[in-house]
Design a binder for these strands. Structure first.
Lengths: 181, 181
DNA sequence: AGCTTTCGTTATAAGTTGTAACCCACTCGA
DNA sequence: TCGAGTGGGTTACAACTTATAACGAAAGCT
């Protein structure tokens, strides 16, 4: 049973996180400002602290949401073959670069992700493992290799390290996906 | 000919960058504070602006230094076979995680690396290409694949994404290096 | 109706980057 | 050797940031 207050609170939190995603997409995680978000929501800075204990908690919540969104993205892939999963991963990553980097990019020393995001990450990995299991033995180690290879490709592409090089990221990705089969 | 003033200036800049590396290693790039560095050098905050036009310029200088250090690291590898280069890369990366992420980690939207670092990166890549050329045809594309695979492995390891998993990063790295031969 | 919880406000503390103005010391040329 | 100019360091300040405290008002519950 949700009271009106709870619903309102959830709505404000959701709107704040929406603005936060926009800010992160525009200026990266370090450029995220609670004050600016509050202003966009039509309230003063300190008011937002009723909804998020700190800037870090907001970012943690964004990371949680990010993992959730990736999980639904891979869950939406019907028959779980590796190529389809890889394609879904790339599409999801390209949809929001900074979201990808928030989860898999530069770690902040001292920051530890909450336990439930690790569990979500595990479920995502499991999905990849079962896909690999259909294609032969040693599913776990092949899934691990798939993950590291795809991540290497994606993170370099998203970071723009291929720009200025005569490289077609999509083709490179496809060729690397084939190497996994 | 270097005047005493120039030598003094260069020294202060070098010391500031040293402290900057320490700060980045401790709290990541967002935690880098010009004020704190100035204090460590025994001067007030604004004084540092005589040496670096802005925080961004200091970070740019650090990135430049990072690329330079990687270039000397790979140049120190005598016979350039891919396995040796990969080993040198991993050792260099493990020596300072945040330095690696400063160069290959999460990009800041709107920030563009200066041209000379791209040239240095190109020279490093060339080294990898010549190493691949000794092992067969299609050196360029094999070098590119080597880069993306090693980066995927390294960045996940350095970010701590393997901790909690039954994974031996060194062994995984070795096995992936073999896949390149 | 009245009580309590919660929300949003202003005020404030302690940081940050960066600029401006000023002083002092060192360097360099006449 | 002395005077002028350059460059380093200081304090003061503006405009930000995160975060807390204290207060008022609105909404919900009994």
């Amino acid at each position: 049973m949700t009271t009106p207050r709870e619903r309102y609170r959830a709505q404000v939190r959701a709107e704040a996180m929406e603005k936060a995603w926009e800010q992160i997409a525009a200026s990266g995680a370090p450029g995220l400002s609670l004050n600016a978000i509050a202003k966009q929501l039509g309230m003063t800075g300190p008011a937002l602290y009723r909804y998020f204990a700190s800037r870090d908690e907001l970012i943690t919540e964004l990371i949680r949401e990010g993992y959730g969104s990736l999980e639904t993205a891979v869950a939406a892939v019907g028959e779980a073959d590796v190529a389809a999963l890889a394609g879904a991963l790339r599409a999801w990553a390209l949809a929001d670069r900074q979201r990808y980097f928030l989860m898999y990019g530069t770690p902040v020393p001292g920051y530890h992700a909450p336990e439930d995001t690790r569990e979500t990450a595990q479920r995502i990995m499991d999905r990849l493992v079962t896909a690999c299991a259909k294609a032969g033995p040693d599913a776990e180690s092949r899934a691990l290799r798939a993950w590291t290879r795809l991540h290497g490709l994606l993170s370099l592409e998203l970071a723009g390290h291929f720009s200025g090089m005569p490289v077609d990221p999509a083709a490179l990705f496809e060729s690397e996906v084939e190497s996994l089969g």
